[in-house]
Design a protein around this nucleic acid. Structure first.
Length: 562
RNA sequence: CCGCUCGUAGCACAAUCGGAUAGUGCAACGGCCUUCUAAGCCGUAGGUUGCAGGUUCGAAUCCUGCCGGGCGGGCCA
């Protein structure tokens, strides 16, 4: 519909240019928006206001000229000039409801597009080190990252989901010492408990499992515990596998999967870390000072240079980060999107600087980042900071147990990543009837219920049968709902382009509200008015399909009854 | 002190990257079930978009300054 209108406007402008009423403007693409207010019509363009200055005409006069120049067509019922110079388009009935046919025909594919054209994108998210259970921040990352992946798939990209972690660093050594201490019978209160040791009760579970010589399988590794308390390396390997498995269970319960788990240690083993340093040196972006090797990141927008290799010969953390991202580049991902907590924002400049320093033709905005702000968990009016299991933070599993997977995913993905988020447990629970997730799911279940009821009238009371009677859909509720459904492909494309999954959540709430409103205003099934009933069932089914498709993008289920 | 980021109704969040009268849910108040699911609907009330300037046809959105919250600022990761 928008495409058709864009084409009409394009022709109108060309006609005006031919008559020399408007100067030629290269790259002009008429912008057409859905209106917020029905009194402004169905679609509107600000074209006249944008062009007014260059055409040396008053916006409203120019708008009138554009309307005059519009080719005749059978889409538009009427046009109006409004406000400072908006052109409002009122679509006719058929233009409104034709989308129902398209939705039923395309089913789960409705809303998808192919702007990605099969090009390869990678989304890296969660990337938690295996030192403890996933916390709510990881949960937010998982919800957002997975929805981003789904959005990219829906817009035609070939998406690779990756989880990056370190199984050999200082934190892991600390983990191993903590487990060993527990196995030796120490507690965090003891004076010889490891400094900065992990204190959660999961360490105790881990120590017990290790001593019982348990075998654990995670997505990327399987290991059997040796049970030898003195073998720190064996404890470490077991602890990593055990925690990876814990995280896998959390992610599975959350409906999130990965294509690849990438180990930081692999970058050292393959020599890619040292190769990266060598490449940066030969590109002339490094210097030695104070016994350390520095990268001139200030050449690429950083506020000061950074140490790459310390006096003791060890590399600083961002060197493997650069090597890792060069590895991603070499794997041929046209787009790489990193979903991380905002506390990592300072690494963005450094990673990009390192990649630029390699001089391999990597675009300077590559990779892309989506950073999410902190999550605060509230319960009984107070912040929840502790979890017994984790020792110092609320876990993703806690949230799922408290409010369920669907509500957790929705709450964590339905807000803009750039805003700090307060997760109110009481709201999400007391909800049972008030939660926005249920509001949307309820609309879906209602349609399913209507369809079941319709079939009791006769076997031919199907959504498909209604497609022959779409002209009977004429009430304001029906037309508004149809128009809203027609926006879905735009919403998906825009959310994917902006990397903002929460757009989908907001849109679904509008769709659910429009449907609930229609449901209460008009009886959908009326045995005495079969044709109209069938058309309404078609519209309801189209609504259900859009809700199901949208919820799927958020990883939330669409129940057939509630 | 410096950098990034956020500040919207009592609370939690939106606002189609500059559009028209700033929306939605919770909480509050008043209505609607012998009818397809009342986990719903309809209505009322609630705002100087932190503050002060600027840019233009038009600002919650962009710019400057200030105030406040968060996160960073290590040869830690």
């Amino acid at each position: 519909m928008k495409e058709a209108l864009t084409s009409l406007l394009d022709q109108a402008i060309k006609a005006l240019i031919a008559k020399e009423q408007v100067p030629e403007i290269p790259d002009l693409v008429p912008q057409i928006d859905h209106t917020k207010d029905a009194s402004h019509g169905d679609l509107a363009t600000n074209l006249a206001m944008v062009l007014a200055k260059k055409a040396r005409m008053a916006p409203r006069d120019l708008a009138a000229a554009i309307i005059d120049a519009l080719p005749t067509n059978d889409l538009i019922a009427k046009t109006e000039i409004a406000g400072p110079g908006f052109i409002n388009f009122f679509l006719n009935q058929a233009s409104h409801v034709e989308v129902v046919r398209s939705i039923l025909k395309n089913g789960p594919k409705f809303g998808s597009s192919n702007s990605g054209a099969g090009r390869r994108a990678q989304v890296e998210f969660v990337s938690a080190n295996p030192t403890g259970p996933l916390h709510v921040g990881h949960g937010r990352g998982a919800a957002i990252g997975d929805s981003l992946s789904r959005l990219l798939v829906a817009t035609g990209w070939s998406v690779h989901r990756e989880f990056y972690y370190n199984d050999a660093g200082q934190q892991i050594a600390n983990l191993a010492r903590s487990v060993q201490a527990r196995a030796q019978g120490l507690t965090p209160e003891d004076s010889n408990w490891p400094e900065d040791g992990y204190r959660g009760t999961y360490i105790t579970d881990l120590a017990t499992a290790y001593q019982n010589k348990i075998t654990v399988s995670a997505a990327d590794r399987t290991i059997t515990a040796l049970g030898d308390i003195d073998n720190l390396a064996a404890i470490r390997d077991f602890a990593v596998a055990w925690l990876r498995r814990e995280q896998d269970l959390d992610l599975k319960a959350f409906g999130v999967r990965f294509d690849e788990y990438f180990l930081e240690s692999a970058l050292y083993e393959s020599g890619e870390v040292t190769d990266t340093v060598t490449a940066l040196e030969s590109a002339g972006h490094t210097y030695e000072e104070g016994g350390a090797l520095w990268l001139r990141t200030s050449d690429f927008g950083d506020d000061k240079d950074r140490v790459m290799r310390k006096k003791d010969g060890e590399y600083t953390y961002f060197v493997p980060d650069v090597a890792y991202h060069f590895n991603k580049w070499q794997r041929g991902f046209e787009r790489v999107i990193n979903e991380q907590g905002a506390d990592h924002h300072s690494t963005i400049t450094r990673v990009r600087a390192g990649l630029q320093g390699l001089a391999k033709g990597i675009p300077d905005g590559w990779p892309e980042y989506v950073l999410h702000q902190m999550v605060t968990v509230m319960r009984d009016g107070a912040e929840v900071k502790l979890s017994k299991r984790a020792g110092s933070y609320v876990t993703l599993r806690d949230l799922i147990e408290w409010v369920g997977k669907d509500a957790t995913r929705f709450f964590l993905a339905a807000r803009s990543a750039s805003s700090q988020l307060t997760f109110d447990i009481d709201l999400a629970l007391s909800q049972s009837n008030e939660n926005p997730v249920f509001y949307i799911q309820y609309a879906h279940a209602r349609v399913c219920s209507v369809k079941r009821k319709a079939l009791t009238e006769g076997a031919d009371w199907t959504p498909e049968a209604g497609l022959d009677y779409l002209d009977t859909l004429t009430t304001s509720e029906e037309l508004a709902l149809a128009l809203l459904l027609a926006k879905f492909p735009d919403v998906v494309a825009s959310a994917a382009q902006r990397l903002e999954p929460h757009d989908v959540a907001n849109y679904l709430r509008e769709v659910a509200a429009a449907f609930h409103g229609l449901y209460n205003a008009h009886k959908l099934i009326d045995e005495d008015n079969k044709n109209q009933s069938l058309a309404r069932i078609s519209l309801a089914e189209a609504t259900r399909q859009v809700i199901a498709n949208g919820l799927d993008l958020l990883g939330v289920s669409a129940p057939e009854s509630m």
